[in-house]
């Protein structure tokens, strides 16, 4: 009996943890992929976004897209790892480093403040980064090129 109670408790805890985690990533605070509003980058598929941030070259209309990591928010980066590249931080960083070392492919750029991120997206017409959807909405100089959570719902 005690074991059954313990098992039910464990399942409930696991379900709650998953549900809360999903709510964090795809609930009120959703992650979106953005570029500058004047950017030539068009809508991207989830596969293209994953490919881009894993260090693979992604070409759109003859131009190579530049991935930019938004490291200004720790929680946002965790959600990016969970919903966009589907791996842990050490694994992701090691794989990107391996790919660069193996084939010389460029590493994603890193921005640690919102100000430098905005400047990069504004000045680089092929740059793509990620942020919270609520942060992207109020900014006319940005456009959303992919919504990982919308794909999950569809």
């Amino acid at each position: 009996m005690k074991f059954a109670q313990w098992l039910i408790g464990l399942c409930c805890t696991a379900w709650l943890t998953c549900a809360m985690g999903d709510n964090l990533a795809c609930g009120e605070r959703r992650i979106v992929l953005v570029s500058g509003s004047q950017s030539s980058v068009q809508q991207l598929s989830s596969t293209e976004v994953r490919k881009l941030f894993m260090g693979f070259p992604v070409n759109q209309r003859g131009q190579y897209i530049v991935p930019v990591l938004n490291l200004s928010d720790t929680l946002l980066y965790e959600v990016f790892l969970q919903k966009v590249v589907f791996m842990s931080a050490p694994s992701y960083e090691r794989r990107v480093m391996s790919r660069t070392f193996r084939q010389g492919d460029a590493r994603p750029l890193k921005m640690t403040t919102q100000r430098t991120l905005s400047e990069t997206l504004h000045t680089n017409p092929v740059a793509v980064s990620f942020m919270w959807k609520e942060d992207a909405h109020g900014k006319p100089d940005l456009k959303i090129v992919q919504e990982p959570c919308r794909n999950l719902e569809e």
Partner: peptide, 9 residues
Amino acid sequence: TVAAQNAFI
């Protein structure tokens, strides 16, 4: 170019 990047490991 705008897309040029360097990496050092």
